[in-house]
């Protein structure tokens, strides 16, 4: 399956994602510049982490207006797989492809460490090879990961099972102490109602080789590949 990895001025995880897809997953991948509207026949789009446009105004707020995001929206509307990681998640929120917004982390500190997340919904194209309740060991690195949404919309999100990952203890318990940033209900990743757009704050591409301390992120990419090979 061919992956497209977007590049904005200030992206800095695009090479990590490209490496994970090419060298670990052994799948074709191409970079796509933010000025382009051609997604090069990719079957999945990764909106990578970093600091697009220097995080000016709000995280993801300016990247949202890039020409490529119009193409990504049309791709998502047709059911294409879109994965936003960290700043990529923030861009998807600002673009309205996913509901809600990010506030600064509780404690106002940049958080960079290894965390545990629990798979809350294994019936998405991103988690099909995981079991519900599986705990993944995966790194985070962000200043704005404190997910928020008004109460009614949040209840809809929960009802629709759009919460895909939650921060948890290494044993899979959802506790206040295992929440690194104050995110509502420990949310670490959510999808759209159709399930083809996922935003997550943790970095699966940084957990894709033994050398990196965890390979749990590989299951996410493998799930994406499998979801399309069945079609």
């Amino acid at each position: 399956m061919k992956f497209g990895v977007l590049m904005f001025p200030g992206s800095n995880c695009e090479h990590d994602a490209y490496h994970a897809i090419r060298k670990v997953l052994r799948q074709p991948a191409e970079f796509i510049w933010h000025q382009s509207t051609d997604l090069k026949d990719c079957q999945a789009i990764i909106v990578p982490g970093g600091f697009s446009y220097g995080d000016y105004l709000r995280t993801g707020a300016i990247a949202r207006f890039s020409p490529v995001m119009g193409a990504v929206r049309r791709f998502a509307d047709r059911g294409g797989l879109v994965l936003g990681i960290c700043n990529g998640f923030q861009i998807l929120l600002e673009s309205g492809l996913l509901p809600g917004a990010m506030l600064r982390n509780r404690g106002l500190k940049y958080v960079c460490r290894q965390v545990s997340i629990r798979v809350e919904n294994a019936r998405t194209p991103f988690t099909g090879l995981a079991g519900e309740g599986d705990v993944w060991n995966i790194p985070i690195g962000h200043m704005e990961g404190n997910y928020t949404l008004d109460t009614d919309a949040f209840q809809r999100l929960e009802r629709n099972r759009q919460v895909v990952f939650r921060y948890c203890t290494p044993h899979g318990e959802i506790t206040a102490d295992s929440n690194p940033n104050g995110s509502a209900a420990n949310v670490a990743g959510i999808c759209n109602p159709r399930g083809n757009v996922l935003g997550m704050i943790p970095h699966p591409e940084r957990a894709s080789e033994p050398l990196l301390g965890s390979e749990d992120g590989v299951r996410l990419f493998q799930s994406m590949i499998q979801s399309r090979s069945q079609v």
């Binding site: 105004l57 707020a61 207006f65 600002e94 509901p99 809600g100 917004a101 506030l103 928020t148 949404l149």
Partner: peptide, 8 residues
């Protein structure tokens, strides 16, 4: 449309 995120 630009300067604010109406969610927050």
């Amino acid at each position: 449309d630009v300067l604010t995120n109406p969610v927050i």
